[in-house]
């Protein structure tokens, strides 16, 4: 059983969001970078659990990005995994990123590819579905539970208005969200081991981007809160009804 986990680098959830160069680029000065929480808490940890259950599982991590991703991928390796692959290119187009991962995945003959449901910076929710289409394997999105049984998997996933339990024959691509696993803190042994685990840097395949971010915008500032005294809820109801027109 070979598993590939897709890892993305994102700004910490508490980062101040600002832009530079005429709003064309994210202002990364002073930003703390983390593993995208969906990739780490629900995706990587689930894959590690599968390997703990069956030590013959081969677990590879992959990221697409420059050398500044290495700290993040080492941190991921400190949690678990046998080796990591970094495709050495940068892009803001999901088609380019998915194509890079698909090229590696095809060569590695993985049985399972895990992605987080989205990154907390670009909020694309696109890589998993694109990978599945590129590799022509089933795609199960928004998984909350996952059980492996030989070459079959049982996946519980969020659908419109509820959940669905699906059976699938591997290989498959799964996007993971809350419920799959719980957050873990890397221990000293893991951190030491991660230093010597292989991190392969591979060149990108030639793919033309289909989209480009031209600029960023910040939402208009809120006008400020209108406070209503606690003993006068009638005024709040009136404001919601007549001013905001939401009830």
């Amino acid at each position: 059983m070979k598993i590939l986990v897709c890892i993305s680098k994102t700004p910490d959830t508490t980062s101040k969001i600002a832009f530079k160069n005429n709003n064309a680029q994210f202002e990364d000065a002073g930003v703390q970078w983390i593993i995208n929480p969906y990739d780490e808490w629900y995706t990587l940890v689930k894959a590690i659990e599968l390997k703990e259950k069956d030590p013959s599982v081969i677990l590879h991590l992959i990221t697409v990005g420059g050398a500044d991703c290495d700290a993040i991928i080492r941190k991921a390796l400190a949690l678990g995994g046998d080796e990591a692959i970094r495709v050495d290119t940068e892009s803001d187009d999901s088609y380019v990123i998915a194509s890079q991962i698909a090229a590696v995945a095809k060569e590695g003959n993985y049985d399972l590819i895990f992605t987080g449901k989205e990154t907390i910076d670009y909020n694309g929710s696109a890589i998993g579905g694109m990978l599945a289409a590129k590799l022509q394997v089933p795609y199960l999105s928004l998984a909350t539970q996952f059980e492996l049984n030989g070459s079959e998997a049982k996946v519980t996933r969020e659908i419109e208005g509820g959940e669905e339990v699906d059976a699938v024959t591997l290989p498959a691509v799964i996007s993971c969200q809350k419920g799959m696993a719980e957050q873990r803190i890397p221990n000293m042994r893991g951190i030491m081991a991660a230093r010597t685990k292989p991190l392969k840097v591979v060149p990108p395949v030639a793919i033309e981007a289909l989209t480009h971010i031209v600029a960023y915008e910040l939402p208009p500032a809120k006008a400020g809160v209108k406070l209503v005294p606690a003993d006068d809820v009638a005024t709040l109801v009136k404001l919601l009804h007549e001013e905001a027109k939401v009830i």
Binding site: A98, N123, S125, G128, A132, L142, I159, L210
Partner: peptide
């Protein structure tokens, strides 16, 4: 951009080699 759209649109984009903007 709902559960179904998120599941299906990326596959359509790849099959058509179309640029995708979600959300």
């Amino acid at each position: 951009h709902t559960q179904t759209g998120k599941a299906v649109a990326p596959g359509v984009a790849v099959q058509l080699k179309a640029g995708l903007v979600t959300g």
